[in-house]
Design a protein around this nucleic acid. Structure first.
Lengths: 222, 222
DNA sequence: ATTGCCAGAATTGAATTCAAAATATAAAAT
DNA sequence: ATTTTATATTTTGAATTCAATTCTGGCAAT
């Protein structure tokens, strides 16, 4: 869609590595093959290593002294913690969005909502999850808080891989859809109190976490 | 106190540059003098530039294509946005802390609280702010959520410079102290609902923001 | 067969080098 | 004298180089 144009070389490399982690081409726990990636990307080690430093500060890789970088594993704990923080941020987004959202944005979110309902009825989980994600991002963007948007996107990026391979139980799925009805209603009447409350609980629900648990690593031991 | 030992060179350099920004040695809006800093730190440009990439991803500096890095200015908007996000995170911390805090931690927080009250009575603003900060950090740590702790610390670091030079009005100060009484009380009775609510409102109060506004830049124009 | 040791190879971290871009300085033109 | 143009200098971005460390594989000892 609207991909952000990375004008720095190390930024470009970092984006590529993130994608490779998402795609599983670089497996969690494995070492980062500097030389090989350099050849693959056609760059020298300098920008690649710069990218690794940035990715380390984002939590995608860990730097091991004198033995390069290793792809971070996503622990169940870390996943749970990340979803908790994202919930808090979504709660704030909801409150702020009530104050700042435009009619056009609201209309767009409603359209996405009905689209999502259709995917739910058809049990099309992949498309459902994608649309669901778009709704949440749209609310976050409507907060008009750039710091919030950045932090949210960064955390989301970190857990995206496992979130999109989730297996939702029938009960959880029904509950999530009901939540979304409530979210749209609260947003439509600009009820920031209610919207904040729903969003703070919506994601961090243990149900989703446990449904995701299978995708994440049990522990981060060597 | 318990400073984290940085074992990577670029990490060390990044920490030093953060400190220099905090201290005002590197002025917001000014260009980063690579060569000079290299001599000062006794390192080559490679680790220094790695540090700059990390600092850029943390928001401390901006990278300008082909003209190096510039120290970020802290806009009033960014300050406001950051405090809003920190409030949301503190709210979550409070809720989680109620479930996880140990007696020893609670006792420590109470001790800090009484110490802070003394500073308030003596109108010792600098020490008050420091102790206040310690209380909030202790609650965040008690959440036992590592992602939360990391994100909070990162945001806090970003606004620390201006927060510690705040000028609190008498009314705001009194209100903040009252909030803290309520915070301690809620924490003591493990009332996560109440604590979450107080903490979500405590910081983002417009009053503090406006009191800090004088310290931040009006706009981020070139 | 397993463990310990050592040389050689590969990898890493950081300094250095090099080309391109930006900035500063000087000369020329009006 | 001021503006413009040309040239030199500095600075930046990225590749290359180099020393230090880690990894690998083979050989010897038990």
């Amino acid at each position: 869609m609207d991909k952000i144009k990375q004008n720095t070389l190390h930024g470009e490399v970092a984006a590529r590595i993130r994608d490779m982690i998402d795609a599983g081409t670089l497996a969690p726990g494995s070492r980062v093959p500097e030389k090989q990636l350099c050849e693959q990307f056609g760059v020298s080690r300098t920008p690649l290593r710069e990218a690794l430093k940035v990715l380390a500060s984002e939590g995608f890789v860990e730097l091991l002294p004198n033995r390069g970088a290793r792809i971070s594993k996503l622990t169940i704990d870390t996943l749970q913690h990340t979803l908790e923080v994202m919930s808090a941020l979504e709660g704030l987004s909801g409150e702020l969005a009530c104050a700042h959202i435009s009619e056009a944005e609201l209309a767009n979110i409603e359209a996405l909502h009905y689209q999502m309902l259709a995917y739910y009825k058809n049990t099309n989980m992949a498309e459902y999850l994608l649309t669901n994600q778009q709704i949440h991002e749209a609310i976050v963007v409507a907060s008009r808080n750039d710091v919030l948007i950045d932090v949210y996107k960064s955390l989301n990026q970190r857990v995206r891989r496992v979130r999109f391979s989730a297996e939702l139980s029938r009960e959880y799925w029904a509950k999530a859809v009901q939540d979304h009805e409530d979210i749209i209603a609260a947003l439509r009447r600009r009820d920031s109190e209610a919207l904040g409350q729903i969003l703070r609980r919506h994601l961090s629900d243990k149900v989703e976490v446990s449904s995701l648990a299978g995708m994440a690593e049990q522990k981060n031991l060597p």
